[in-house]
Design a protein around this nucleic acid. Sequence first.
DNA 1: GTACAGATTGAG
DNA 2: TCAATCTGTACT
Length: 178
Amino acid sequence: MKNKRLTRNFYTKPTLTTAKNLLGKYIIRRIGRKELIGKIIETEAYIGPQDKASHAYNSRITPRNKVEYLIGGHIYIYLVYGMYWQLNIVTAKQGKPECVLIRALDLDKIANGPGKVCNYLKLDKSFYQEDLSKSKKIWLEDRGERIKPCQILATKRIGIDYAGLYWSRRKWRFVLKN
DNA sequence: GTACAGATTGAG
DNA sequence: TCAATCTGTACT
């Protein structure tokens, strides 16, 4: 099967669906004439208005999170703890502040953590609001790998205990087994 | 202009 | 288990 760039309609599906669909897909980052390619092996969903752990909880709109309200396919990238960049992919339709955090990639080395993902892919603020369906610098491809439901592990989310047990225990983190 | 909290990481 | 670390955000 031919490598296929993911188009807009991949990103506009329900967020939990897209979070699972993203597993096993490839992220392509072009730097000049080089390409960095990594398989997505871990994702985490954030569903804005209802999700206390989300920046868009209670439909908040700030200059930082406003891209979450755009139609799926845009990049939401931001700095946390003053040191680490977090790569998110905006999902769902326009007006719905939902996104998926890319937590881990498999490149030549394993990027097992959101901060490392951005470090290895050399992503920073300049990618804010980049459109994955059009960008020449970064996009996603389906390389024909079939992921079976039994390969997907759903676990509780990470690093958001402050949001309370109810939200931190939601199994919205998806890991690709091996 | 200023206070403040954080979707992590790596060391112990 | 736990603290380093510092930018962007939000509010005055």
